[in-house]
Design a protein around this nucleic acid. Structure first.
Length: 155
DNA sequence: GCCAACGTTGGC
DNA sequence: GCCAACGTTGGC
C-alpha cells in the first residue's frame, strides 16, 4: 500500500524547480539529520510512495509540488562522510552509516497550497505540518488529507 | 532578525 | 538516568 509523505526543503537550498531541472528529474534526498525522519525513510518508505514537496523557511511556506519515491529503499547518505559537506558527520561510522537517503523524482506541478491555507482549512488543520512546533522534515500524510487537498486545491 | 519549540549533548 | 545548556528549525 503506497503511502504519502510530506518532505520539507528550503527553496534556497533545493527547490521544487531544482528537482524538475535535475538530471532524470531525480535527486538524492541528502542531509536528513533527524532520527525520526531517518527511520521513516528506512522503515516505511517504498518506491512509488507519493511525496508532497514542501518549501520551508521562505516567504510563502507550503506544498508546492508532487514527487515520488524512486529508490527501492533507503541507502547511506554520502554527504555524512564528506568533510567538505555541510552535512558531514564525523561520528558516523562508514561500516555502519548513521544517515540515509532515498531518491525523490519529480511527478507533477500543482498549484501551491500555502501553509496558511492548510491552517485555515477546517479539514486540513489537523495535518502534522500545521501543528505548532512541528519541525520534522519527513512526515507521513493521511490519505484523507491528500484527498481533500486534491478536491479543494487541485481540481 | 526574532524567538518559541524542539532535539541532542554531556556533566554529574 | 536526569536535566541544563546548547544548537537548530522554521514561522512570523
Amino acid at each position: 500500500m503506497p503511502r504519502i509523505w510530506l518532505m520539507k526543503s528550503e527553496p534556497e537550498v533545493f527547490s521544487f524547480e531544482d528537482l524538475q531541472a535535475a538530471a532524470n528529474r531525480t535527486t538524492m534526498w541528502e542531509g536528513v539529520r533527524n532520527y525520526q525522519a531517518r527511520n521513516f525513510m528506512r522503515d516505511r518508505m517504498q518506491k512509488g510512495d507519493t511525496v508532497l514537496f514542501y518549501h520551508s523557511n521562505c516567504k510563502e511556506p507550503g506544498i508546492v509540488g508532487l514527487a515520488e519515491i524512486s529508490s527501492t529503499e533507503a541507502y547511506p547518505d554520502p554527504t555524512q562522510f564528506d568533510p567538505e559537506s555541510a552535512y558531514f558527520d564525523p561520528k558516523s561510522d562508514p561500516a555502519n552509516p548513521r544517515w540515509l537517503v532515498v531518491d525523490v523524482t519529480f511527478a507533477k506541478s500543482v498549484p501551491p497550497v500555502a501553509l496558511k491555507a492548510i491552517k485555515a482549512h477546517p479539514e486540513l488543520s489537523a495535518m502534522k505540518v500545521a501543528q505548532r512546533g512541528m519541525r520534522l522534515s519527513v512526515q507521513p500524510v493521511e490519505e484523507e488529507h491528500l484527498a481533500i487537498i486534491q478536491r479543494d486545491f487541485w481540481d
